[in-house]
Protein backbone atom coordinates (compact mmCIF):
# COMPACT_ATOMS: atom_id res chain seq x y z
CA UNK A 1 0.00 0.00 0.00
CA UNK A 2 2.69 2.45 0.98
CA UNK A 3 5.63 2.91 -1.23
CA UNK A 4 8.55 2.79 1.09
CA UNK A 5 11.40 4.05 -0.95
CA UNK A 6 14.77 5.69 -0.80
CA UNK A 7 17.50 6.44 1.62
CA UNK A 8 15.89 9.49 3.17
CA UNK A 9 13.10 7.33 4.51
CA UNK A 10 15.58 4.99 6.16
CA UNK A 11 17.54 7.82 7.74
CA UNK A 12 14.31 9.47 8.85
CA UNK A 13 13.11 6.22 10.34
CA UNK A 14 16.41 5.77 12.16
CA UNK A 15 16.32 9.26 13.66
CA UNK A 16 12.68 8.96 14.61
CA UNK A 17 13.22 5.54 16.17
CA UNK A 18 16.11 6.93 18.16
CA UNK A 19 14.00 9.83 19.42
CA UNK A 20 11.07 7.54 20.19
CA UNK A 21 13.38 5.24 22.10
CA UNK A 22 14.71 8.22 24.03
CA UNK A 23 11.15 9.29 24.85
CA UNK A 24 10.15 5.75 25.82
CA UNK A 25 13.12 5.29 28.13
CA UNK A 26 12.56 8.80 29.48
CA UNK A 27 9.01 7.90 30.43
CA UNK A 28 10.25 5.30 32.88
CA UNK A 29 13.74 6.39 33.73
CA UNK A 30 15.92 9.49 33.54
CA UNK A 31 19.38 9.79 35.13
CA UNK A 32 17.99 12.28 37.66
CA UNK A 33 14.60 13.66 38.54
CA UNK A 34 14.32 16.37 35.85
CA UNK A 35 12.87 18.84 38.36
CA UNK A 36 15.09 18.07 41.36
CA UNK A 37 17.18 21.07 42.35
CA UNK A 38 20.53 21.13 44.05
CA UNK A 39 22.17 24.24 45.45
CA UNK A 40 25.53 22.48 45.55
CA UNK A 41 25.64 21.71 41.83
CA UNK A 42 24.44 24.84 40.09
CA UNK A 43 25.66 25.51 36.56
CA UNK A 44 27.99 22.51 36.57
CA UNK A 45 29.93 21.87 33.38
CA UNK A 46 29.36 18.61 31.51
CA UNK A 47 31.16 15.79 33.27
CA UNK A 48 30.80 12.26 34.49
CA UNK A 49 28.06 12.98 37.00
CA UNK A 50 26.07 15.16 34.62
CA UNK A 51 26.83 14.39 30.96
CA UNK A 52 25.29 17.72 29.85
CA UNK A 53 25.94 19.66 33.02
CA UNK A 54 23.34 21.32 35.22
CA UNK A 55 21.26 24.49 34.93
CA UNK A 56 20.92 27.50 37.22
CA UNK A 57 18.88 25.49 39.75
CA UNK A 58 21.32 22.58 39.69
CA UNK A 59 18.90 20.46 37.65
CA UNK A 60 20.42 17.81 35.39
CA UNK A 61 20.23 19.10 31.81
CA UNK A 62 20.31 15.67 30.16
CA UNK A 63 17.30 14.56 32.18
CA UNK A 64 15.53 17.78 31.32
CA UNK A 65 16.27 17.48 27.62
CA UNK A 66 14.81 13.96 27.65
CA UNK A 67 11.80 15.11 29.63
CA UNK A 68 11.42 18.20 27.45
CA UNK A 69 11.55 16.14 24.27
CA UNK A 70 8.86 13.91 25.71
CA UNK A 71 6.67 16.87 26.61
CA UNK A 72 7.10 18.51 23.22
CA UNK A 73 6.47 15.21 21.47
CA UNK A 74 3.29 14.53 23.43
CA UNK A 75 1.93 18.02 22.85
CA UNK A 76 2.60 17.66 19.12
CA UNK A 77 1.13 14.17 18.99
CA UNK A 78 -2.07 15.10 20.83
CA UNK A 79 -2.64 18.30 18.89
CA UNK A 80 -2.14 16.55 15.55
CA UNK A 81 -4.53 13.83 16.70
CA UNK A 82 -7.18 16.42 17.53
CA UNK A 83 -6.67 18.21 14.24
CA UNK A 84 -6.67 14.98 12.26
CA UNK A 85 -9.78 13.49 13.84
CA UNK A 86 -11.82 16.66 13.54
CA UNK A 87 -10.40 17.24 10.06
CA UNK A 88 -11.32 13.72 8.99
CA UNK A 89 -14.92 14.10 10.09
CA UNK A 90 -15.40 17.62 8.73
CA UNK A 91 -13.41 17.11 5.55
CA UNK A 92 -14.85 13.65 4.95
CA UNK A 93 -18.46 14.72 5.29
CA UNK A 94 -18.17 17.94 3.34
CA UNK A 95 -16.11 16.30 0.62
CA UNK A 96 -18.53 13.41 0.35
CA UNK A 97 -21.79 15.31 0.45
CA UNK A 98 -20.78 18.73 -0.84
CA UNK A 99 -23.55 21.33 -0.95
CA UNK A 100 -23.83 24.69 0.76
CA UNK A 101 -22.42 23.46 4.05
CA UNK A 102 -19.32 22.47 2.15
CA UNK A 103 -19.16 25.86 0.47
CA UNK A 104 -19.59 27.72 3.76
CA UNK A 105 -17.09 25.63 5.68
CA UNK A 106 -14.50 25.96 2.97
CA UNK A 107 -14.96 29.71 2.90
CA UNK A 108 -14.47 29.78 6.68
CA UNK A 109 -11.52 27.51 6.16
CA UNK A 110 -9.99 29.96 3.72
CA UNK A 111 -10.35 32.79 6.19
CA UNK A 112 -8.81 30.78 8.98
CA UNK A 113 -5.81 29.74 6.92
CA UNK A 114 -5.28 33.41 6.19
CA UNK A 115 -3.97 33.85 9.71
CA UNK A 116 -0.43 32.63 10.11
CA UNK A 117 -0.86 29.82 12.62
CA UNK A 118 1.45 31.43 15.13
CA UNK A 119 -0.61 34.60 15.09
CA UNK A 120 -3.81 32.69 15.70
CA UNK A 121 -2.15 30.69 18.44
CA UNK A 122 -1.12 33.90 20.18
CA UNK A 123 -4.68 35.17 20.13
CA UNK A 124 -6.24 31.85 21.09
CA UNK A 125 -3.88 31.23 23.99
CA UNK A 126 -5.07 34.51 25.47
CA UNK A 127 -8.56 33.01 25.49
CA UNK A 128 -7.66 29.63 26.93
CA UNK A 129 -4.98 30.75 29.44
CA UNK A 130 -1.48 29.39 29.02
CA UNK A 131 -0.53 25.87 29.97
CA UNK A 132 0.24 22.43 28.61
CA UNK A 133 -3.37 21.42 27.97
CA UNK A 134 -4.34 24.75 26.49
CA UNK A 135 -1.49 24.58 24.02
CA UNK A 136 -2.61 21.11 22.92
CA UNK A 137 -6.13 22.38 22.43
CA UNK A 138 -5.08 25.56 20.65
CA UNK A 139 -2.72 23.80 18.27
CA UNK A 140 -5.27 21.04 17.71
CA UNK A 141 -7.91 23.58 16.73
CA UNK A 142 -5.41 25.32 14.51
CA UNK A 143 -4.71 22.13 12.58
CA UNK A 144 -8.35 21.34 11.84
CA UNK A 145 -8.69 23.58 8.75
CA UNK A 146 -5.64 22.24 6.94
CA UNK A 147 -6.50 18.61 7.61
CA UNK A 148 -10.14 19.19 6.71
CA UNK A 149 -9.08 20.74 3.42
CA UNK A 150 -6.77 17.88 2.47
CA UNK A 151 -9.33 15.24 3.39
CA UNK A 152 -12.07 17.08 1.56
CA UNK A 153 -10.08 17.39 -1.66
CA UNK A 154 -9.04 13.76 -1.58
CA UNK A 155 -12.49 12.46 -0.74
CA UNK A 156 -14.05 14.56 -3.47
CA UNK A 157 -11.60 13.10 -5.97
CA UNK A 158 -12.08 9.53 -4.84
CA UNK A 159 -15.83 9.92 -4.90
CA UNK A 160 -15.78 10.28 -8.66
CA UNK A 161 -13.79 7.06 -9.13
CA UNK A 162 -15.37 3.84 -10.32
CA UNK A 163 -14.83 1.77 -7.20
CA UNK A 164 -16.78 4.22 -5.10
CA UNK A 165 -19.57 4.47 -7.66
CA UNK A 166 -19.96 0.73 -7.82
CA UNK A 167 -19.89 0.42 -4.07
CA UNK A 168 -22.67 2.96 -3.83
CA UNK A 169 -24.63 1.25 -6.59
CA UNK A 170 -24.38 -1.97 -4.62
CA UNK A 171 -26.12 -0.17 -1.79
CA UNK A 172 -23.25 0.11 0.65
CA UNK A 173 -24.07 2.71 3.28
CA UNK A 174 -22.43 6.11 2.93
CA UNK A 175 -20.49 5.93 6.18
CA UNK A 176 -19.09 2.57 5.20
CA UNK A 177 -18.07 3.84 1.78
CA UNK A 178 -16.42 6.82 3.34
CA UNK A 179 -14.46 5.15 6.09
CA UNK A 180 -13.93 1.61 4.80
CA UNK A 181 -13.54 2.17 1.08
CA UNK A 182 -12.23 5.69 0.63
CA UNK A 183 -10.13 6.21 3.75
CA UNK A 184 -7.49 3.53 3.02
CA UNK A 185 -6.97 5.03 -0.40
CA UNK A 186 -6.21 8.50 0.85
CA UNK A 187 -3.97 7.18 3.60
CA UNK A 188 -0.62 7.82 1.89
CA UNK A 189 -1.42 11.48 1.31
CA UNK A 190 -2.80 11.73 4.81
CA UNK A 191 0.25 10.14 6.44
CA UNK A 192 2.54 12.56 4.71
CA UNK A 193 0.38 15.45 5.88
CA UNK A 194 0.39 14.08 9.39
CA UNK A 195 4.18 14.04 9.41
CA UNK A 196 4.29 17.62 8.17
CA UNK A 197 1.59 18.63 10.64
CA UNK A 198 3.57 16.99 13.39
CA UNK A 199 6.60 19.05 12.48
CA UNK A 200 4.58 22.24 12.48
CA UNK A 201 3.27 21.26 15.90
CA UNK A 202 6.77 20.73 17.27
CA UNK A 203 7.87 24.10 15.94
CA UNK A 204 4.72 25.82 17.20
CA UNK A 205 5.00 24.28 20.66
CA UNK A 206 8.62 25.26 21.03
CA UNK A 207 7.90 28.78 19.74
CA UNK A 208 4.99 29.26 22.12
CA UNK A 209 6.87 27.84 25.09
CA UNK A 210 9.81 30.01 24.12
CA UNK A 211 7.49 33.01 24.43
CA UNK A 212 6.32 31.64 27.80
CA UNK A 213 2.83 30.72 26.64
CA UNK A 214 3.14 26.94 26.42
CA UNK A 215 4.40 24.43 28.95
CA UNK A 216 4.77 26.10 32.34
CA UNK A 217 7.83 26.01 34.59
CA UNK A 218 9.24 24.12 36.40
CA UNK A 219 8.24 21.48 33.85
CA UNK A 220 10.62 21.05 30.97
CA UNK A 221 9.80 21.55 27.32
CA UNK A 222 12.24 22.22 24.52
CA UNK A 223 11.07 25.78 23.83
CA UNK A 224 10.96 26.63 27.53
CA UNK A 225 14.53 25.36 27.94
CA UNK A 226 15.74 27.33 24.93
CA UNK A 227 14.35 30.46 26.51
CA UNK A 228 16.09 29.73 29.81
CA UNK A 229 19.33 28.71 28.08
CA UNK A 230 19.62 31.99 26.22
CA UNK A 231 21.00 33.82 29.24
CA UNK A 232 23.82 31.28 29.56
CA UNK A 233 24.97 31.24 25.94
CA UNK A 234 28.54 32.12 26.78
CA UNK A 235 28.92 30.19 30.00
CA UNK A 236 26.99 27.09 29.02
CA UNK A 237 26.41 26.92 25.26
CA UNK A 238 25.73 23.17 25.49
CA UNK A 239 22.50 23.99 27.31
CA UNK A 240 20.95 25.79 24.32
CA UNK A 241 22.63 23.46 21.86
CA UNK A 242 21.27 20.26 23.36
CA UNK A 243 17.71 21.57 23.52
CA UNK A 244 17.99 23.00 20.01
CA UNK A 245 19.42 19.75 18.68
CA UNK A 246 16.50 17.82 20.13
CA UNK A 247 14.01 20.05 18.27
CA UNK A 248 15.97 19.68 15.06
CA UNK A 249 16.20 15.89 15.32
CA UNK A 250 12.48 15.56 15.98
CA UNK A 251 11.62 17.73 13.00
CA UNK A 252 14.27 16.24 10.74
CA UNK A 253 13.22 12.67 11.47
CA UNK A 254 9.58 13.25 10.67
CA UNK A 255 10.44 15.44 7.70
CA UNK A 256 12.44 12.64 6.12
CA UNK A 257 9.73 10.13 6.96
CA UNK A 258 7.06 12.23 5.30
CA UNK A 259 9.04 12.15 2.08
CA UNK A 260 9.26 8.41 2.36
CA UNK A 261 5.49 8.18 2.49
CA UNK A 262 5.51 9.40 -1.06
CA UNK A 263 5.65 12.89 -2.24
CA UNK A 264 4.87 16.33 -1.12
CA UNK A 265 2.00 16.35 1.28
CA UNK A 266 0.54 19.63 2.35
CA UNK A 267 -0.45 20.80 5.76
Amino acid sequence: MLQVKNKSFRIGAAITLFMLLLILVGTFWTPYDPNAMSAAEKMAAPGLRHPLGTDNFGRDILSRVVEGTRATFLVALCSVAIGLLAGLVIGGLTGYYGGWVDELLMRLNDSLTAFPSLLLALVLIAVFRSGKYSIILVLGVLFIPSFARIVRTEVAQQKALDYVRSARLMGVRDMRVLFVHILPNILPVLLSSVAIGFNNAVLAESSMSYLGLGVQPPDASLGRMLNEAQAYLLRAPWYALSAGLAVILLVLGFGLLSEGFGGEGRA
Binding site: R129, S130, G131, G212, L213, Q216, P217, P218
Partner: peptide
Protein backbone atom coordinates in the same frame (compact mmCIF):
# COMPACT_ATOMS: atom_id res chain seq x y z
CA UNK B 1 1.61 19.33 48.28
CA UNK B 2 1.05 19.58 44.54
CA UNK B 3 1.43 23.14 43.37
CA UNK B 4 1.48 24.11 39.70
CA UNK B 5 2.70 27.36 38.23
CA UNK B 6 0.68 29.39 35.77
CA UNK B 7 2.57 32.19 34.08
CA UNK B 8 0.37 35.07 33.01
Amino acid sequence: IEATIRLV
